[in-house]
Design a protein around this nucleic acid. Structure first.
Lengths: 375, 375
DNA sequence: TTGTAAGCGTTATCAA
DNA sequence: TTGATAACGCTTACAA
């Protein structure tokens, strides 16, 4: 019985104290292959041998070196994901679901945050690709050309690539999308307020320049309002504390009269005066909460004097008086569905399948019917 | 001039479409070593050669395989971090700071969430160790024996290990701690309320069984209250929406009279009746916000009838009326200081140095002086 | 059931 | 300034 197939432990120039397969093999008095085999298919090793190997494993404190393993097997078990912001709960739920589903299937999640910067996204993607991930998850469909090229290369090489948190058909794009259509959400938000009788709307957009999805919701919101002949004002939120930004946005909406930034004027058939809006939609619930509280602080009644609509369905919105109407995005489902799509693609060897997931407009007290509504 | 040192591209059994160093070398008409050298020390390659290599790099779309690189060099650039919950903003800030500081130094962050489960922590740590990280970051000082053993092995092998978000001297523990002392915070919270004249205190603890740090703050809070002769009730928050849990906790505190769970009775010198508390401290700001709003909904004036104190300094707390008094933890600093400590330890080859970071008790409207305070 | 040999893609060492 | 060669620690294919 051969005992070991590597030269004596003549510590070479490299190597870091940790036990290797060879060390375990030496202790167990078998060869590396047998130990490796035991680790992957214990059933294929004789009981007595297995026993010795178990003991050797324990006594050496062996931890397999993944670099070596993945290099040898030629395939990693890593899924790489690029997320705008880790500390933002809206993506947190997606990541949590993705992470759990992948972990359950024996994969590991390598995560990087881009800080909403397309340039950092490209840089991070390049770094993550070095791990030869077997799957790739990126947020949204807006990327630098470089990012798109890297994604296309990966796609061409058979690596499943999924864009999450968006869903917008684009013949030119080969990537699977798992998310929802933000323009649809924006339109639905506008229709909800229009149906309640509002003719003077406003949208408080995200203060983050590259939060493309929030901008899209805003653009669609404005478009729908104009089509209905309502006036619409777009206000950009300030950076910093989102509650404060919401408060400030309201102050600016109320102080500024009909002005050049009011885009409602130029729309043919506009029937409403572009003065104070009677309903405001926000890019996220934090902005909406701040705005709602500020409105009340200024003596406005919500929803009678001002209706407020958010996005994201954050827990705090339910606590306000009145509770905040909002859109509930499929945050968790996106993570779960993405994991499933990746796993299925890996199994079948085909490209992952995109899908649109359902969101929900949740009507609470902050947008109850407007007094002027024609019911 | 040798052009390549690998056999013709006879696609062997393994290998995945991607370009390798050998491919680049073939195109650039040099050997792998030269390309590798160019990648690491461009100055050591002749200008003309460098030019050809640059072109080859671009045309092949080469991305270095890290598995191979790290295996060959014997050292990774990975720092592994274990965090209870990624979607919890309090750790989000730490991770963000840690990630940015490490990235700036050319390291990569491999992240895993434990869901506050010590068992998952051990499991994840085992998985992360397979990447042979050059640094290890774990949250807190409470671990399974297995986790402690893995950490000790890594420490013994010269890998810097840092416990974050805690700081409690322990002769027996060899690991550096970077954080703050939660017992101190708990005592300070109690003293703040005692100084305002409160004699009947309560602490609403985290609903997560393994949120050891919240429990420690609660235990110290209770101890300090008892020493001062005040009554103290400990209430465990329910699971689920933390705002709702806070609301419910208050209802339970108010409905239950002096009962067995009131631990204030047995304290010698207790001068107050253990009835309704006049001040409540919470394990986090979300609980405190829910509790504060519930108090107002029930007609209690804050802080006159009930003072409320939180922990974490979440943005929402500033928005309440009155604003929430709270403790501001050094979330970001922990991340930054941890990165610095790891980098310094790696450079010097010595163990990382722990440090206590300053937190701050922020007094806002929710705990202004009690009417009975003896000023 | 176990072992031998070759190779994964890179870097370190030394020689030219 | 560049190249030849030998690792790094593991898995795969095939032989015994």
């Amino acid at each position: 019985m051969a005992v070991d197939d590597t030269p004596p432990p003549r510590r070479s120039r490299r190597g870091h104290g940790r036990a290797t397969l060879a060390d375990v093999a030496r202790v167990a008095e078998v060869t590396k292959v047998t130990v490796s085999r035991y680790l992957r298919e214990p059933a294929k090793v004789a009981a007595a041998t297995a026993e010795r190997i178990r003991a050797a494993l324990a006594s050496t404190g062996y931890v397999p070196n993944k670099q070596a393993g993945l290099l040898a097997s030629g395939r990693s078990n890593i899924v790489a994901a690029l997320i705008p912001n880790l500390s933002h709960s809206i993506f947190g739920e997606t990541v949590q679901a993705l992470s759990e589903a992948l972990q359950a299937a024996g994969h590991e999640l390598l995560l990087a945050s881009t800080g909403y910067s397309p340039e950092r996204e490209e840089e991070q993607l390049r770094a993550l690709l070095g791990w030869a991930p077997l799957g790739l998850v990126v947020t949204g469909r807006h990327h630098t050309d470089g990012t798109r090229r890297l994604m296309a290369d990966a796609h061409a090489a058979g690596t499943p690539v999924v864009e999450v948190w968006d869903y917008q058909l684009d013949e030119a794009s080969p990537f699977a999308q798992i998310g929802f259509n933000h323009a649809q959400v924006g339109r639905a938000m506008a229709r909800h307020l229009l149906a309640a009788g509002h003719r003077a709307l406003a949208y408080v957009d995200s203060g983050v320049d590259t939060d493309f999805r929030a901008h899209e919701r805003g653009a669609a919101f404005a478009d729908e309002a104009r089509r209905a002949g309502a006036s619409i004002r777009l206000q950009r939120a300030a950076k910093g504390d989102p509650f404060d930004a919401g408060r400030q946005a309201l102050r600016e909406l109320l102080s500024a009269g009909p002005d050049a930034s009011s885009t409602g004027n130029s729309v043919p058939g506009n029937t409403a005066l572009p003065g104070r809006p009677s309903a405001v939609a926000c890019a996220n619930d934090h902005l909406a909460c701040g705005l709602l509280m500020q409105a009340q602080a200024q003596g406005l009644r919500v929803p009678q004097d001002l209706a407020v609509l958010g996005f994201g369905d954050f827990p705090v919105g339910r606590q306000l008086q009145p509770a905040l109407s909002t859109v509930h995005p499929p945050s968790q489902q996106i993570g779960w569905a993405t994991a499933q799509a990746l796993l299925a693609a890996l199994q079948s060897g085909s490209a992952p399948v995109g899908q649109a997931l359902p969101w929900q407009l949740i009507v609470r007290g902050s947008t109850l019917a407007h007094p002027l509504a024609k019911t």
